[in-house]
Design a protein around this nucleic acid. Structure first.
Length: 434
DNA sequence: GCGATCAGCT
DNA sequence: CACAGCTGATCGC
């Protein structure tokens, strides 16, 4: 693709059209409420959610891409200065509400940008997704696949989300008199919460801004901000820690559930690195078939649920594709080239290392573990301008968020105390005060 | 005072 | 390790 034409999930100057795959912060880094660099294409749901994340944004710049149909965009070719047409189709990425993959056709060829995506292979929804993709690709060979390679390593295996959601529901049902906290982000994992709510006939507490999101998504009477109405609370992931759970257990029996494709998200108590180290070792051992030191919950033996700590379970509920699903996706797309869009992971490997043989004309490449090589990969990708981002995890909207922070502090307590206290105020608090 | 950026943390 | 995110400090305007 030529420089100066379009950008995906990248917000620096110099493009004529900008595309957003979904509203997670690591994809909107550089985008602000004062956006004015050009038209911004996204899904209908993302457009609906935009004002929550970017209050004051000029909505007339938004262009809705309905999924499953081609949209033509007239632009100027940066090289010839002549008019050129870019066609784009949005395809549901099944990552979080509003998330899409983007399929482009133009003078640059045919490109497929997955954004973050989950490509489940079983079930009715998977069949629909598969047929949709095949239909979209029927006239084209994909020249370059820009791939969500978050879990592009055979060590990542996890079940479909419906299965993992049932595991979470089972854990909750087996702790009938415990309070439950579940760590989630600002968007995503809604279906997990719906499953729990439906199955256990229980409302779920969320923090006030998350309730707004839920209402925009069309969920009514399921979520609440009143702590007295339920024992199940979904709290911001950053407020979920073993420290928080220790604190909560001084008030009331509480367990935490962390739904994640990664098994090591919860940090141990400060100064307890030995415990953490042994847990990781045990996790790796148990993955290899031997029983490690982790207490594996009896009802979920060997199914990915780990009792990480006396108060914490991790459940393999992931909004990214596991290795096998990535493999199936590449088999289906059969791209000429593949480029990973996530390069910050320390276990980063060029997708071609695993999947070169599945592509149209590629020898297997060697792994890319070296950080210098990783950097050059990133640069190469930026040079061709279908912007792969580097997951740096830094929120540039910190200032904007800062302005809203106090509203989240629903107990009305000044937040500048200890971290543990802050975490409690931000969602894990039991004491009702409404 | 504000936005942008970074370090530190979860 | 790091799915995505918050917070405080600092700097230039």
């Amino acid at each position: 693709m030529e420089k100066g034409l379009i950008s995906v999930d990248q917000w620096t100057q110099g493009s004529q059209a900008y595309f957003l795959t979904h509203l997670h912060s690591d994809h909107t880094k550089g985008l602000t409420s004062s956006w004015a660099r050009g038209p911004l294409f996204c899904s209908r749901l993302t457009a609906k959610l935009f004002p929550l994340k970017f209050p004051g944004l000029n909505l007339s710049l938004l262009r809705v891409l309905d999924t499953g149909s081609w949209h033509s965009i007239s632009l100027i070719s940066p090289s010839s200065r002549e008019k050129t047409v870019v066609q784009v189709m949005a395809i549901d990425a099944h990552h979080c509400p509003g998330s899409i993959m983007l399929l482009f056709r133009g003078e640059f060829g045919c490109l497929l940008y997955t954004g973050d995506f989950r490509w489940e292979t079983d079930g009715e929804r998977a069949k629909i997704a598969r047929n949709t993709l095949l239909k979209a690709l029927k006239d084209d060979a994909v020249d370059i696949l820009y791939l969500d390679n978050t879990y592009c390593n055979p060590k990542y295996e996890f079940p479909c989300r419906e299965f993992a959601a049932q595991q979470v529901a089972d854990i909750i049902a087996s702790h009938p008199s415990h309070d439950i906290i579940i760590g989630i982000d600002t968007l995503g994992k809604e279906e997990l919460l719906l499953h729990i709510s439906r199955l256990l006939n229980i409302k779920i507490w969320v923090w006030p801004e998350r309730l707004q999101t839920m209402q925009l998504l069309g969920f009514h009477d399921i979520f609440t901000t009143k702590t007295s109405l339920t024992r199940v609370r979904a709290v911001p992931r950053y407020s979920f820690s073993i420290d928080t759970l220790e604190e909560l257990n001084t008030i009331r029996p509480t367990i935490g559930i962390m739904p994640s494709g990664l098994p090591w998200l919860v940090k141990p108590l400060k100064g307890n690195d030995k415990l953490f180290g042994s847990l990781l070792t045990s996790y790796n051992r148990s993955k290899n078939g031997a029983k490690g030191g982790i207490e594996t919950d009896k009802m979920n033996d060997n199914l990915g649920v780990e009792r990480f700590h006396k108060y914490v379970y991790t459940v393999p509920y992931s909004d990214h594709s596991c290795f096998m699903e990535i493999q199936e996706f590449i088999k289906l797309v059969q791209p000429v080239k593949v480029r990973g869009i996530v390069s910050s992971s320390s276990c980063y490997v060029d997708p071609l290392y695993y999947f070169g043989r599945l592509c149209k004309a590629n020898p297997p490449s060697r792994g890319l573990h070296n950080s210098e090589e990783r950097k050059s990969l990133g640069k190469r990708v930026i040079a061709v301008q279908t912007n792969c981002y580097v997951r740096s995890g830094n929120a540039t909207e910190a200032g904007r968020k800062r302005g809203r922070t106090l509203k989240v502090n629903f107990l009305g307590v000044n937040a500048s105390k200890t971290n543990a206290l802050r975490r409690i105020q931000r969602g894990a608090k039991i004491v009702p005060s409404e």
